[in-house]
Design a protein around this nucleic acid. Structure first.
Length: 278
DNA sequence: ACTACGTCCTGCTTGC
DNA sequence: TGCAAGCAGGACGTAG
C-alpha cells in the first residue's frame, strides 16, 4: 500500500487490534517476504513466539511493532503487501505469506502478491529499528525539519520528483503523492532541485504534507482490493486525486488536458500548462 | 560521493 | 479467442 497515508491507516489498525497481544504461533508460508531476516526463517519464528506486542509505530512507509523482548517486528508493504487482522477460522488466502497467531480470536496475516514487501525482526529495535533510523523523517513527524529538507534539495541536481521519492531526503512520499504535491505547487517534476526557488520547494513540501493528511482523513487511496486497512476495507481518496491516473482529463485549475509521461521508468501525471519545466 | 538504471515478483489489462 | 507485451502505489544493488 504503499504510501504514507495508507501505511498510517494500517498502523492505526494494528494499534487498535494487536497491541497488547502475545504471538502464540508463527508460520512462514513463503520464505521470500522474510528475506530481510538474515538469520533465517527458523530464527524469525523463534524470536516472535511467546512475545508480546507493546506498540505500533511508523516512519515513512515502514511499520514496526515494538516487542516486550526489546526487539521489533518490522514490516514494509512494498507494492502489494497487506497486514490483515482476521478471524483465525478464515481460510488462508492465496497470497498469505506469514501467519502470526495471537492470544486473541484474530490472526495477524502478512499477505503480499508480488512479495516486494517483507517482515523481519530487528534486534533491539523496539525504540527505533536501525533499518528505519536510516531513512529521513516524514512530513507528518513532529520533528520534521522543513528547512533542512529544502537545503538538501537545493544541493542536488536531480529532478524534484526523484528527490521526493528518495526516502533518504524525505520519507513517506510515493508516486501518487509526489505527483499530487507537484501539481498542487505547480512545479514540474523534472526541474533540478538546485534550480528551484526556496519558496517553491517549500510549497511542494507543504503540499505533500497537506495532501497526505487529506488522504489519511479518507482512509487512504485505493484503486483496487490490494490497498486496504487491516480489516480489508478500501479508502476513498482516489476520488480526490487531481493528477495521478488522470491522463487526458481536464486540469481542475486551468482546464488543460493532463498529460502522462514516463520518467524514472514510471508514470508521472501533470498539467502541461500549470507545471512548466522552466 | 552522487546519480541513474535494471531488477526483484505476480497478475491484470491492453493490443495485435 | 489466444498470446505477449505493458503496466502497477517500492526500494535495492550495481554501474557509471
Amino acid at each position: 500500500m504503499p504510501e504514507l497515508p495508507e501505511v498510517e491507516v494500517v498502523r492505526r489498525g494494528l494499534d487498535a487490534h494487536v497491541v497488547g497481544h502475545t504471538i502464540t504461533r508463527v508460520e512462514v508460508l513463503h520464505p521470500r517476504p522474510v528475506r530481510r531476516h538474515l538469520s533465517g526463517v527458523g530464527d524469525f519464528a523463534d524470536r516472535l513466539t511467546g512475545v508480546k506486542i507493546t506498540a505500533a509505530r511508523r516512519r515513512g512507509k515502514y511499520l514496526w511493532l515494538p516487542l516486550d523482548t526489546g526487539d521489533a517486528l518490522v514490516a514494509h508493504l512494498g507494492m502489494s503487501g497487506q497486514l490483515l487482522v482476521q478471524q483465525a477460522d478464515i481460510p488462508a488466502q492465496r497470497h498469505l505469506r506469514v501467519l502470526l497467531e495471537l492470544d486473541a480470536p484474530n490472526d495477524l496475516r502478512f499477505v503480499d502478491q508480488r512479495m516486494f514487501g517483507g517482515v523481519w525482526v530487528s534486534d533491539g529495535g523496539a525504540e527505533l529499528p536501525t533499518e528505519v533510523a536510516a531513512i529521513a523523517l516524514d512530513p507528518l513527524d513532529p520533528a520534521f525539519d522543513e528547512d533542512a529538507v529544502v537545503a538538501r534539495i537545493h544541493k542536488s541536481s536531480s529532478g524534484i520528483k526523484r528527490l521526493l521519492l528518495n526516502q533518504n531526503v524525505v520519507s513517506g512520499i510515493g508516486n501518487i503523492y509526489a505527483d499530487e504535491a507537484l501539481w498542487s505547487a505547480q512545479v514540474h517534476g523534472e526541474r533540478p532541485g538546485n534550480r528551484i526557488k526556496s519558496a517553491d520547494v517549500r510549497r511542494v513540501l507543504t503540499a505533500a504534507r497537506d495532501v497526505m493528511i487529506a488522504a489519511l482523513a479518507q482512509g487512504g487511496t485505493s484503486f483496487d482490493a490490494l490497498y486496504v486497512n487491516v480489516e480489508g476495507d478500501s479508502g476513498y481518496f482516489e476520488r480526490s486525486l487531481e493528477a495521478y491516473g488522470r491522463e487526458g482529463e481536464p486540469c481542475s485549475r486551468c482546464g488543460s488536458a493532463l498529460v502522462r509521461a514516463q520518467f524514472m521508468n514510471r508514470s508521472s501525471y501533470f498539467c502541461p500548462v500549470c507545471q512548466r519545466r522552466r
